[in-house]
């Protein structure tokens, strides 16, 4: 499938869609960044997309036919225009059933090293299969979904154009994965700062970043996604869970995947890229504000009691990590 591939270049302060070659030296991603030794890396400004699969994935992502009663789509809980979340403690599935964990954002999820809070899916395609058949989320059966999609001529056509195997769970999730690859928030003020524009972030945000490094937040929240590339125990410094607040199986974290006691209450370190907009926080959505979340992290993960001013500075820094999602066009 060599066709349909276009390269999308997203420019600072605007949008430029062009052909495959970086002409006139306009490709910002090639500009050397001034802050190269920092523990955080900027999100690339351009990436290859398979435009037809992305378009199909986009439709499927918003397709309620993927649920048992045709009421819920991926986008019900992952609202694209709302930083990929619904801001609910736990999301509502079909027939108003409540989920058990907080829906994480789909934004920048391609940069996560594993998917779900406990990392049980190695990639987005594997992840996408989860909610469709989960009885309290989309509550569907694959055969029904396939039959429903086959009934729509446009889908039938699109799948047969793009895939040898037509409509299967694999091809459906492959298309969704291609779409999710494009859900990136690029050119955040902090990325601009990393690329050498010292004025892109405020003094408070710089202070916040210093504190973020000084307090050790950055030991886990690092890399391109400011997190999302390792596991850590919730309560690494001071135990966070006790008998009273261990309410559900989900609180056991990665233990559910490995069945190894070492992994009790261990979770994937979430990305902070759009964290400023994805309240409530943590796997159970139990914490309503970013301020509170930072305090808990400082105390239970890092063994620091931080001042309100320090907290505010770090919040300001986290704000600077969010870039804009720009819909890829064909």
């Amino acid at each position: 499938m060599l066709t349909h591939k276009v390269r999308v270049f997203l420019m600072a302060g605007g949008l430029f869609l062009g052909a495959a070659m970086p002409v006139h030296g306009q490709n910002l991603s090639d500009t050397p960044s001034l802050h190269v030794d920092e523990p955080i890396r900027p999100i690339p400004l351009s990436h290859e997309v398979d435009a037809k699969k992305v378009a199909l994935g986009d439709r499927l992502f918003h397709e309620t036919l993927l649920s048992g009663d045709n009421t819920v789509s991926c986008a019900t809980c992952h609202i694209i225009d709302n930083y990929g979340v619904d801001n609910q403690k736990v999301s509502a599935g079909i027939e108003g059933k409540s989920g058990t964990v907080n829906s994480p954002t789909v934004m920048n999820s391609r940069f996560n090293f594993a998917q779900f809070w406990d990392g049980r899916a190695a990639n987005l395609q594997e992840q996408a299969k989860g909610p469709v058949t989960n009885p309290i989320e989309m509550g569907a059966v694959w055969e029904d979904v396939i039959t429903k999609l086959q009934g729509e001529p446009e889908y039938a056509q699109a799948f047969s154009d793009l895939y040898e195997d037509d409509i299967t769970p694999d091809t459906i999730t492959d298309a969704i994965q291609h779409y999710e690859y494009t859900l990136n928030t690029v050119n955040s003020p902090f990325d601009q700062y990393l690329r050498g524009n010292d004025d892109a972030i405020s003094d408070q945000q710089k202070r916040g970043y210093s504190l973020f490094k000084e307090f050790g937040c950055v030991a886990c929240h690092q890399g391109i996604n400011v997190g999302g590339n390792m596991y850590q125990r919730m309560g690494a410094f001071i135990p966070y869970f006790n008998k009273e607040n261990t309410n559900s199986k989900d609180d056991l974290g990665r233990y559910n995947v490995t069945k190894n006691e070492r992994d009790l209450h261990v979770f994937k370190v979430p990305s902070l890229r759009v964290a400023a907009h994805t309240a409530p926080y943590f796997h159970d959505g139990s914490v309503a504000t970013l301020e509170e979340a930072i305090n808990i992290m400082a105390r239970y993960q890092l063994g620091h009691d931080i001042t309100l001013q320090e907290n505010k500075d770090i919040q300001a820094f986290i704000q600077s990590l969010s870039g804009a999602y720009i819909k890829a066009a064909e």
Binding site: E214, G216, A219, Y231, F237
Partner: peptide, 23 residues
């Protein structure tokens, strides 16, 4: 790979505490 995952978590802890102690 499993060992590497453990290593990452432990390195983060060690780094944080070393940092705290120094400062």
């Amino acid at each position: 790979i499993e060992l590497i995952e453990q290593l990452k978590s432990k390195v983060a802890l060690a780094r944080n505490s070393s940092n705290y102690l120094l400062s």
